[in-house]
Design a binder for these strands. Structure first.
Lengths: 144, 144
DNA sequence: ATATATTCGGATAATATTGTCCGAAATAGA
DNA sequence: TCTATTTCGGACAATATTATCCGAATATAT
């Protein structure tokens, strides 16, 4: 469904959100450990997330990554997915056709439309505070 | 969503289904042209589909690929997707966790579950006769 | 039998994705 | 100011996916 980079990106963002909601800043090392991901590769993804204003990065000692309290409601899954994988997954044709639309549909156009729209709607309405809350409560997990 | 191989596989199967429903057998060359795919790569995918009893292959002059009339109702999209991409997309965790389930859910488990189940249900209930009919009627397209 | 048309299957190549390494830049604290 | 800690960014490496090539196997028709 999503690329590995995107999966790491979502997990990293959620871990940062969880920690930020407790007022804690977290380092690359801490993130990689928390989400069980390769550190250097995760660093690349975090750079991308930072450029897209999804997370905030602070250099230097006691630096790391955080998300402003006020952003936890605004940041939604769709922003992470779009930043890393693009919008093909919920906007593109299921069979990869360039010009597939209502007037020129591929054979699975209608069938896929509802699935794609559901996915897009879910991603667009789910904010990270909600997901971080489950982590904080110990009801959900980011590894194993 | 699906790999390119899988997209080619679905398109190839639908083209064969369309032709088979008209009693016509079709060659690799014809398929690659009809679905605008690289011929040699398409050949590999067709071998895989043949091994999985999704299409029937006939060697020699006037050979090619076909699907028995009686199979058009039985063959569903889920078989093609499973044969080529596996079941991770509709059975696996959205974040790639190995052991993500009701008792040990990832943060997006519930949200993804409905999307995944919708997708799986759609793939499991859509047979290729139905999709081939749209092609035959000229209502849907496999290229451009 | 022979020539021809076709799929099969193994080897190889090109490209994309995933992952690593390391020096540069920034910044906090001594 | 100096040192240590951290992210940044570019180059590189490994792996997976996509794509190509070509001889072998098979079957048809002459």
């Amino acid at each position: 469904m999503f690329s590995k980079a995107c999966q790491y990106g979502i997990k990293a963002t959620l871990h940062i959100a969880e920690q930020s909601s407790q007022g804690k800043r977290v380092s690359l090392k801490g993130i990689a450990k928390a989400i069980d991901s390769p550190e250097a590769f995760t660093a690349k993804i975090l750079q991308l997330l930072a450029k897209n204003n999804i997370v905030n990065s602070i250099k230097g000692p006691s630096g790391g990554f955080e998300i402003a309290e006020s952003d936890l409601d605004n940041i939604r899954l769709i922003q992470i997915v779009t930043a890393i994988d693009g919008d093909q997954i919920f906007n593109g044709c299921g069979l990869g056709l360039k010009k597939c639309d209502e007037n020129n549909p591929c054979p699975v156009h209608e069938k896929f439309k509802s699935v794609r729209d559901d996915l897009k709607n879910m991603l667009a309405t789910t904010n990270i505070r909600e997901l971080a809350a489950g982590l904080n409560a110990g009801n959900t997990y980011l590894r194993v």
